[in-house]
Write a protein that binds this DNA or RNA. Structure first.
Lengths: 353, 353
DNA sequence: TTTTAGCACTCACCAAGAGAGAATGCTAAC
DNA sequence: GTTAGCATTCTCTCTTGGTGAGTGCTAAAA
């Protein structure tokens, strides 16, 4: 899609494209020229619109599912619509209140808030909702605890500033004295405090060097323990995937499997979204369509995502969004995503202030 | 199913029922009398077998998908087969070695072992594998940690004897002094050590009473904190659900949704399995078929489960199993489940010895 | 130059029908 | 008790023909 050209459209062409997208979104049926005329209320005959639609097809914005059927937007058509034609709908007061209310329920961790967010988005959109935990490079270690469990087993708990606890445990070859563990714990806390979780390995290794000769045994133990800490995979919550099965485009078995695929491993989608958000205007909102979603050769999905920030003007800390068929009501859903992202940011920052 | 009668079968009827089940399991097509004769190599004509099959149908063991189609086993037919006819196949040495190898990989927690188990079972069976963490009533608290995170936020960590860490965190109304937290932590550790996780509330409440007048503030805080600990839902790992989509019986959209349903909430299945295992011979292995699986009105599944024990002659600590269509190769899969359950028990007990 | 009426054409969709094939149940004979 | 024979039942597939929505093209109108 990167190098595809988007030929410019005159006013009439824009109007027709917009109409086709709108009609197709609500009906899921190929759109014919007559229908467009009726919808637009123009004083033109279907034949005229037919010519416009033929032009739009030639430029790559529309396509026919078979000769002499109505037109359907291509990915490029959707993209043009989203970028140039769509007017984001304001949410009603009631809708805003509802979102606000659902997100101001008592929640004590980022985990809970984002799980709730994905649920809320799924409910509000009748599509699948997704919500990512704050990305690691903004997460910072607050505390490391080593807890002796049984003679040779030690649990490692890493708490970050978002209240997320990363746990792991290790079975050692030798027994460890409580004294040794305690001094190790102290050492780790000192060297890891406020270190980004991303950097856990490098920082520790470095600060370990200083100690190496002094406390050889301690150092070895520390390395042994830390290699057990799994690099925290950035977690994403995905809710309401069953809504997708209601869509006519996901009835076929092959399409069904693609949904399962996402549930099992959303990482390609996450990666694509992060990239797109980083390059988007203001790093605010992005829409990916079809192949852009990077879901193993399934080009049926569309996704709308917005970043949230922990401070008004800060860096994006993570994103939330809605996943559905390409044929989604973008105008309405975009505003839901935007507003919710704002609220999530507020709620998260309130957590630790 | 509870009150259904299982009319006794004579030898020929048993042979025919067994043949029908076997053939249907491999072909997924209704089985005709001719096919049965060929398979059995008997010196009888199809007409004779037809009569037997008609009898079996009358008794409820077989059914026709439509007049003048071949026969298919009913749930009752499968059940009779599993209980009386099936001969559990020995695993080959290679198969046993493979399972052993996969389970003796370095793993440091019950969590990892059972996740790996569900994966292994899915792979070996080409169905979905499931594995439950050791049930709570055998899990006992080893250690409680209260970790101050930020001024008003406290994380609660409960470690059980299986190396599983239950975490939660709470935002308090007032700030808490480290001293208070420390004494509270000490108090909780004393009163909760070796207490079953099931009983956390009752035990704490009781032992709190003793302290009530002495240290009022401490007690209130403890209660506040403990109400934040979510009752740990017994976790079950489910892997390989995508294998199910390959089965012809799960092609239709409605069936597909039932699979999703299980992925989202397997608790009815878990409950049914626990119950069945408790009443099974030796509390060892059980097979549930169709409606017995308790999956909201979807009667297409079958499940084979075995309990594992932490000590040779101990109580069952949890179960593992295989979920697939009713039409599963029970003879082979049963032995896989049995053997794996034995290995899991060994691996778990080795963890904390 | 733009728009439109008219018309032939294309294609999906549906219903009805015909024929093949796999099984069955039943009856009467072995 | 077993079986051969046969009419019967039902699914599945393929064909056929009709309908309707929509298109592209051409030539005329604005």
């Amino acid at each position: 899609m990167k190098n595809t050209k988007f030929p410019p459209l005159n006013e009439r062409e824009q109007t027709v494209l917009e109409a086709v997208v709108h009609i197709y979104i609500t009906t899921a049926e190929p759109v014919g020229s007559r229908t467009v005329v009726k919808k637009l209320g123009l004083n033109l005959s279907p034949a005229t619109i037919r010519n416009v639609m033929a032009d739009l097809e030639e430029m790559g914005y529309l396509t026919q599912v078979h000769t002499s059927s109505g037109r359907v937007p291509t990915d490029m058509g959707y993209k043009y619509y989203v970028n140039h034609l769509m007017k984001v709908q304001e949410l009603t007061l009631a809708e805003r209140e509802h979102i606000k209310q659902e997100l101001t329920k008592k929640m004590d961790s980022a985990d809970q808030i984002l799980r709730q967010t994905s649920h809320l988005l799924a409910l509000a959109s009748h599509q699948a909702g997704l919500a990512e935990l704050p990305v690691e490079n903004t997460a910072v270690i607050r505390r490391v605890e080593l807890v002796p469990l049984l003679e040779r087993q030690v649990a490692i708990l890493i708490l970050d500033n978002f209240g997320v606890v990363h746990t792991s445990s290790v079975v050692l070859d030798d027994t460890v004295s409580p004294q040794l563990l305690e001094s190790l714990s102290k050492f780790l806390n000192e060297s890891l405090f406020n270190v980004s979780i991303d950097n856990i390995y490098s920082v520790v290794r470095e600060s370990l060097k200083k100690f190496f000769d002094e406390r050889r045994k301690l150092v070895e133990l520390a390395l042994k323990i830390l290699t057990q800490v799994e690099p925290p995979t950035n977690q994403m919550f995905l809710d309401g995937t069953n809504n997708l099965f209601d869509q006519p485009e996901f009835q076929e078995p092959t399409k069904v499997r693609s949904i399962i695929g996402i549930m099992e491993d959303p990482s390609p989608l996450v990666k694509a979204l992060r990239e797109a958000l980083a390059h988007s205007e203001n790093q605010q909102r992005t829409v990916l369509i079809g192949s852009e979603t990077m879901m193993n050769n399934i080009n049926e999905f569309g996704v709308i995502a917005s970043s949230y920030r922990l401070e008004e003007e800060g860096e994006p800390a993570g994103f939330i969004g809605i996943l559905g068929p390409k044929r989604m009501p973008y105008e309405r859903l975009s505003s839901i995503v935007d507003y919710t992202a704002g609220m999530v940011g507020k709620m998260l920052s309130r957590l630790w202030r």
